[in-house]
């Protein structure tokens, strides 16, 4: 006798994903899709696909999708959520989309405490256009527009979005996770689920920043890329919760318990 303990989620369509081998987008797509399915909101979820590699997300998520201009996801999400507060609205964005061209939309949606969820994939590079420097590219990191490594004198410093948005008074949920190892993937799913629950309970803006790997544009093998996440990315972008809507009233420990998170325990 055997039991299927891991099956492809119905939150994704059947179309094979076109991302490069080892790319973190696929893992993150699965996490978001599983959370949508587990929360039972698939029939009333609207997703927003960005401009960038994950523009294809509108083919992969098995729910209504919209594809707005580069960086404008939070603005479109605002319009949709205000008209359909009964729907769950999430905006899937990369680092160029969210932290560069869409910075104003991101900051103001957070400041208005819009009840939307942002899935922010930070892989420190512009993937779709061939590996140009992003606002999150690490100091010294090579890209096609910083061929000698990012020089702070000419290109400034990387932006840490969670810390940045945590400075706002507006309530919300801000967390940074990664998907480079199984344990991190499980934590990431927990964070995504919590973010969606924050939206569903009307507690304000939620953003999950996910440190992801881009083997192709980092010029690394998939295995080297996950090592790069561990050794280079995470030291600069520390993982953890930066803001949670429960902190003030009930204390951090209780807050963690308040939201029930399904955690897989059936492995050795």
């Amino acid at each position: 006798m055997e039991k299927k303990v891991f099956k492809r989620t119905g939150g994704l369509t059947d179309i094979p994903m076109r991302y490069c081998p080892g790319c973190g987008h696929g893992i993150i797509h699965r996490l978001v899709a599983e959370v949508i399915e587990e929360l039972g909101v698939q029939k009333r979820t609207i997703g927003i696909a960005p401009v960038g590699c994950s523009v294809f997300a509108d083919e992969y998520f098995n729910c209504d999708m919209i594809q707005p201009p580069h960086g404008r996801g939070p603005a479109v999400a605002t319009g949709m959520k205000r008209i359909r507060p009964d729907c769950v609205v999430f905006s899937y964005q990369g680092d160029g989309d969210l932290a560069s061209i869409g910075m104003a939309e991101t900051v103001h949606a957070a400041a208005r405490a819009e009840n939307i969820t942002i899935i922010f994939v930070n892989n420190a590079i512009y993937g779709m256009t061939g590996g140009q420097m992003a606002p999150t590219t690490l100091i010294g990191m090579k890209s096609t527009t910083s061929p000698f490594g990012r020089d702070v004198k000419r290109a400034g410093y990387p932006i840490r979005m969670c810390e940045f948005l945590a400075a706002l008074d507006a309530p919300g949920y801000l967390v940074r996770v990664s998907v480079h190892k199984p344990a991190n993937v499980m934590k990431a799913k927990k964070a995504v689920k919590k973010a969606f629950q924050v939206q569903m309970e009307g507690l304000g803006f939620s953003m999950v920043e996910i440190i992801s790997q881009c083997p192709t544009d980092w010029f690394l093998t998939p295995l080297q890329a996950v090592e790069y996440v561990e050794k280079q990315m995470i030291p600069y972008y520390p993982l953890g919760e930066y803001k949670t809507p429960f902190k003030k009233e009930e204390g951090k420990k209780e807050a963690k318990d308040k939201i029930e998170v399904e955690f897989r325990t059936d492995f050795n």
Binding site: P68, R72, A75, V76, T78, G79, M80, R82, A104, H108
Partner: peptide, 17 residues
């Protein structure tokens, strides 16, 4: 809105709904 750019995209989302 925070800008005209955001305003037009807000009505994009609202109209799509």
């Amino acid at each position: 809105a925070e800008s005209e750019v955001a305003a037009i995209n807000m009505i994009f989302g609202a109209s799509a709904c």
